[in-house]
């Protein structure tokens, strides 16, 4: 399952970059960073690692204010 996920990301990433008309290194960098970030998050989710909700912080903040 995990390998499938990585493969799917890899496939989409490569296909996308391949079809670009201009292959700017900065663009590829940003593209890769975002894609890898997303991959890591979804992989962690897949592995069942409990990730704290990124919005939980705001929630606590706002509840403490009011």
């Amino acid at each position: 399952m995990f390998i499938l996920l990585v493969l799917a990301y890899l496939l989409v990433g490569c296909a996308e970059v391949f079809l670009w008309e201009t292959k700017d290194i900065r663009k590829i960098g940003l593209f890769g960073t975002l894609l890898i970030g997303s991959l890591i998050l979804s992989a962690l989710m897949l592995l069942g690692v409990d990730i704290p909700s990124p919005t939980g912080f705001f929630e606590k903040l706002i509840l403490s204010l009011s």
Binding site: R26, K27, L34, S42, S53, P54
Partner: peptide
């Protein structure tokens, strides 16, 4: 960057993961 189209795909993926995490 002059164009936004190149980051749409990873951003969408990230948004999907985020929506599950949130």
């Amino acid at each position: 960057f002059d164009d936004y189209r190149f980051i749409v795909t990873p951003t969408t993926f990230l948004m999907v993961t985020m929506s599950i995490l949130i």
